[in-house]
């Protein structure tokens, strides 16, 4: 079991969360060239090592979070709220 420290709820089992996918992807503008959309939707670096990925705390606060995790050892390096504004507010509080 991986334990994920949810910024809203505290440390919980990963089975409370749903894995999203590659969290480093930035979706292009709607009028961006097809190639940019192809890259964002289909193409993956598929890192073996530390990657940024999205998870949703579906059985908890239902917030999306960004997790830096090693895909070989499953060690988690950082967790933060996926929403930039929320992440900023949480960081200010600390």
């Amino acid at each position: 079991m991986i334990r994920i420290n949810c910024p809203f709820c505290g440390e919980r089992d990963h089975s409370e969360f749903s894995y999203g996918g590659d969290g480093s992807i930035v979706y292009p503008a709607l009028d961006a060239p097809v190639q940019d959309w192809l890259d964002a939707v289909f193409q993956r670096e598929n890192i073996r090592g530390v990657q940024t990925e999205s998870w949703q705390h579906v059985s908890g606060c239902r917030q999306w979070i960004l997790v830096e995790r090693d895909t070989m050892t499953h060690e988690i390096h950082s967790v933060r709220a996926a929403h930039e504004g929320v992440a900023r507010v949480l960081e200010k509080k600390q």
């Binding site: 749903s18 894995y19 996918g21 998870w55 895909t71 499953h74």
Partner: peptide
């Protein structure tokens, strides 16, 4: 699957 990406 184990539901998250992994090479382990």
């Amino acid at each position: 699957l184990d539901w998250y990406k992994s090479y382990a």
